[in-house]
Design a protein around this nucleic acid. Sequence first.
DNA 1: GTCTATATACTGATAGAC
DNA 2: GTCTATCAGTATATAGAC
Lengths: 202, 202
Amino acid sequence: MTVTTSRQRGEYAKTAARRQEILSAAVEVFSTSGFTSGSLRDVAERVGLSQAGVLHHFPSKTHLLEAVLAWRDEESRLRMDSDHIEGLELLRALVDLVAYNQSTPELVELYATLSAEATSPDHPVHDYFVQRYATMVPWLQRSFELAAAGGQLRPDVDCGSAARQLVALMDGLQVQWLLDRTSVDMAVEVRRYIRSLLTVDL
Amino acid sequence: MTVTTSRQRGEYAKTAARRQEILSAAVEVFSTSGFTSGSLRDVAERVGLSQAGVLHHFPSKTHLLEAVLAWRDEESRLRMDSDHIEGLELLRALVDLVAYNQSTPELVELYATLSAEATSPDHPVHDYFVQRYATMVPWLQRSFELAAAGGQLRPDVDCGSAARQLVALMDGLQVQWLLDRTSVDMAVEVRRYIRSLLTVDL
DNA sequence: GTCTATATACTGATAGAC
DNA sequence: GTCTATCAGTATATAGAC
């Protein structure tokens, strides 16, 4: 907790709320049009500001995108409680997160669109996505290894490969789900894949 | 075979060659920048034409993209010989195609970028990708069903789910591979996944 | 904190000369 | 078949008034 004067409380809260409005609008715009094609004017319209008004809160378009990614990562981290669980429990939480994501199609679309866009080395958030996968794959691999140590994993499973495939499966399912949400249930497929690797129920 | 005069042969060949040059340049541009952000001027520069010159051969930017997709689909179809094989043989050919794709990173990037972009319902090639997956999944499903009928598939495998997961896996691996080609071998992972479903070697 | 106005640049497509 | 010139639209970012 930090001490705040009443004047600070009032003004900062208003600014913070404004920033959050802009972030939400940016999600809508960038998820539909991608980052490069999405425009600040479009973001500004949705929050009832001018384009210059948006740039007062975020100094550039790229800064805005980075703020969106940081905000969403924090949300997912809190939702999964990923700092306190591991092994099978974490895999279960992952399936729950995928199920939850199905209620936020805009955010799913944002990451699907951005991760593809950002494969180009000069994309503004290329490094973010390189880092993201370089962290995520070993992190899941560790959970598979813990499961293996507990005798819960089929003996012929390669943990590194399983982790990489699981991430790929989740990414790929997003595209199919976005194209036709009635025919795909991402959580069901992810759960089925993980179960096929285990000797116990998930 | 069709009959051609010498005059036709000469002029048509030149035009066809030019069209092919433009298609190749378009692959480079659209794969790097996506369709919406990629520009006709950029395509034109790469083939030494003006932007208007490009539009003489393809009446609009969207027509150009559609020609690129049709050309690449035909190439893949011929390479896989997919009209004449099925079952395990087709799954083997699919792994070979994935291995071959690793020699054409630009085309991989094109499809990864486009399939994400095109999830938006108003994207110019949205319908193309909807159709693509609606065809591809049942087509792979049939190969799994043939394998099952031949006793080559593990009895607990759901063919529809396996087909969907296989397509998702291939798509998702592309993103990881594009971000870091040294750490991912798409063909190895796809082969490993398919083998995990079979009772026989692939 | 928000605005208007502006600088600068790029876009797809068309008209018409050659 | 290819060009130049141009139209009408879009973009990010900045300067400065209020």
